[in-house]
Design a binder for these strands. Sequence first.
DNA 1: GAGTCCAGCTTACCCGGAGTAGGTTACTTG
DNA 2: CAAGTAACCTACTCCGGGTAAGCTGGACTC
Lengths: 203, 203
Amino acid sequence: MTTSERKRRMPRAERERQMMGVAEEIFAERGYAAVSMDEIAERCGVSKPMIYEYFGSKEGLLVACIRAARADLSKCTLEAVAGAGSVEEALRRGLVAFFDFTDTHRRSWSLMLRNEAALAGPVAIAEVEEARREQVELDITLFAAFVPDKPRTELEMLAQILVGACERLSLWYVNQSEVTAAQAADMLMSVLWSGVAGDIPPG
Amino acid sequence: MTTSERKRRMPRAERERQMMGVAEEIFAERGYAAVSMDEIAERCGVSKPMIYEYFGSKEGLLVACIRAARADLSKCTLEAVAGAGSVEEALRRGLVAFFDFTDTHRRSWSLMLRNEAALAGPVAIAEVEEARREQVELDITLFAAFVPDKPRTELEMLAQILVGACERLSLWYVNQSEVTAAQAADMLMSVLWSGVAGDIPPG
DNA sequence: GAGTCCAGCTTACCCGGAGTAGGTTACTTG
DNA sequence: CAAGTAACCTACTCCGGGTAAGCTGGACTC
């Protein structure tokens, strides 16, 4: 970040990445509504119309950020699941990867969860919902292998339960210093495996 | 709603209720960001400064609506739980009451869940979070009676898991015609009781 | 029934931030 | 070097949250 670097022209792809980086940071920190496009532009060392040129609208920028963050998350969990030998192991690895992600990429996670409800336009909402859907589909696939006799509707319900539990749990545990990602994953795993009365297995 | 009725002066409490009713309806329908204060004022047959007089800001109005809706929900679930003979029954009754509420009071529910993330001001966020906290506390109490040997931290995690699962599940199932509130409650009950492999008990 | 008080109400404005029209600059390519 | 175009800018419009300042009608006193 040399001073001479700061006002150089950039090719579109690079500028887009920069804009999304800046946006992700301050959207996650202060919330979508509290951030102005002028501020984002200024921090990029560029004027406002450039952002509109590349992202169309403030909502468009947020959607792009959320989709990118979701893609990262999906990539992490998918990779973790891919290396597993059994279905149970896949589930556990997926959970650990998820909580690790929410712990190490707090900005991205806060961006996704705290701002997706700030969207108003139906198209934007649909696009974000579509990005979230990947998560649900992965869980359905896992459950389908885990309990093959259940009908699709029940698998879908199980997946929704899991996704909701993951989200709330991670929102809660980022403020708790004494709980680790692995513990959260274990807790959830134990509930899924044998209900609330089940013991937490050793890490 | 006679024509002569429409422009009468109202005492503050009554006007506040009317404003919150109007706001709840259109916030839930179109989302916080897409609704203007002028529109709310017009629908109330009153001018904008009146709303500011009573609620301070647009956020203040939303917070008031969310808190009222949360209070309704809390009342329903608490009443349902109160009449139970065993802890297990309390849990089941609470779940059924919850899903019934989200099904029959869709406006209130949509208001709470879809708009709480639209808040930007820290005080507003804290107030809403406080309202949600009641739900978590109830669940902790139930789990504490259910699995008395577990430490507080684990009970808290279980409660977060349950709340998250309830929220996601209800968000999903309001769009599904073939799933009833009772089925959703049963599904969740079965998972909590014996994990994902457990059968759904007969209604 | 004239005076006064104040809760409920209004008009008319400010201002910040989303979004845009139209023009300028510098890099590439023949 | 001329031409073309991708990156960029200045200078606006307009909408919506929020406010200042004043009006009104009914309740309550004397």
